[in-house]
């Protein structure tokens, strides 16, 4: 058997796991954005029939899992493992979704990089034959994130120009063995990188060095470059962070050009008043589960690198004067025809 590890931080799978099903559920604001046609379900209000925003977020996550299962006619009993996370303290959205689903569960936290973290772990377990079917899923919710990290919803204040808008939404991806279709062929596990940014209203700048580090690491480990990919897409660097990451990567001699984009920029229209763009676990998840994988299936992209980007801050660490560490994980997804 070939050794699956390559370079310092990367993996190449012997039998790349296939993405057999995806589902995305989003809130009303995302449902008005440019990708509205690509989502499976657009909920009408942020409470989704629940008594609190936290309960709604957990329900959105369950709904994404339910739709993903329904698409391939799988039962919950046929899923070996549920890998999920979210942004809330003690990852309650994922934990309570797992309570309802009754699938063996690992709760993950990698801030907004959690989906890719789940995809890497899930792929490793499937390639290693430790599991047959795995669901990787994440959620975020604008209102739950605002109240945990920032201010009450009804407080009158101006958001800074660098601020990003937490996506209300959840994405679920089912991984299994398979031949044709989009498959995860490789991955790079990122390091925590911190360049000393302390402004919690500018998380794109805090995460950009981590994203650049992981992308460059992947190129070096696998001996590839931007030309080997049809698209390199980060999770939620948004306007400023994306430009910074691009500058950092191009400084190392890799010219990304217009192959480089960001889910936080794709999800909203600039007229939606979200300032720098989208953020949150749900941001990369719903864009990947909808637009990106649809584009792969239609043949628009054959090989992409998806880079989940997380800002590892807490409201407490900010008050204690800590800077914001960033993390980024990458998976390479290829379409097999």
């Amino acid at each position: 058997m070939r050794f699956k590890r390559i370079g310092k931080q990367s993996i190449l799978f012997n039998h790349p796991p296939k993405i057999i099903s995806t589902a995305s559920v989003v809130g009303p604001k995302e449902g008005e954005g440019p990708l509205k046609e690509t989502f499976d379900l657009i909920i009408k209000d942020n409470l989704f029939g629940e008594k609190s925003w936290e309960k709604a977020e957990s329900k959105i996550l369950q709904e994404a899992v339910r739709i993903a299962l329904e698409k391939v006619k799988l039962n919950r009993e046929e899923i070996d493992l549920f890998l999920a996370g979210d942004l809330l303290n003690q990852t309650i959205s994922a934990n309570f979704a797992a309570r309802q689903l009754g699938i063996p569960f690992f709760g993950l936290y990698g801030a907004c990089a959690t989906l890719v973290e789940g995809l890497i772990l899930g792929s490793v377990l499937i390639d290693g034959a430790y599991a047959e079917n795995i669901i990787a899923a994440v959620s975020s919710h604008h209102d739950t994130a605002e109240r945990q990290f920032r201010f009450p919803r009804e407080m009158g204040h101006q958001r800074p120009v660098t601020a990003q808008w937490t996506v209300t939404g959840a994405g679920a991806i089912i991984l299994a063995k398979g031949e044709k279709g989009p498959r995860i062929t490789g991955a790079t596990v990122g390091k925590v990188v911190d360049f000393g940014i302390k402004d919690q209203n500018d998380m794109g700048s805090a995460m950009a060095p981590a994203a650049a580090d992981t992308i460059i690491r992947n190129f070096r480990d696998t001996n590839t470059g931007p030309d080997d990919f049809d698209l390199i897409v980060t999770g939620d660097l948004a306007l400023i962070g994306k430009t910074l990451a691009q500058q950092l990567i191009e400084r190392e001699g890799y010219i990304l050009g217009d192959k480089f984009t960001d889910c936080g920029l794709l999800i909203y229209d600039p007229v939606q008043d979200t300032h720098a763009g989208g953020s949150g676990c749900g941001c990369s998840a719903v864009v990947t589960c909808g637009y990106l994988l649809d584009s792969m299936k239609s043949g628009k992209y054959k090989k992409i690198m998806l880079v989940g980007t997380g800002a590892l801050l807490s409201p407490l660490s900010i008050l204690q004067g800590e800077s914001i560490p960033g993390i980024a994980h990458a998976v390479v997804i290829e379409n097999f025809i």
């Binding site: 990188v193 911190d194 360049f195 000393g196 940014i197 700048s205 910074l244 500058q247 560490p325």
Partner: peptide, 17 residues
């Protein structure tokens, strides 16, 4: 910040930002 970066790298990055 075990991972990071000398102070001047941070300053340089802050300038880019």
């Amino acid at each position: 910040r075990a991972q990071s970066s000398q102070p001047n790298q941070e300053q340089e990055y802050q300038k880019m930002v």
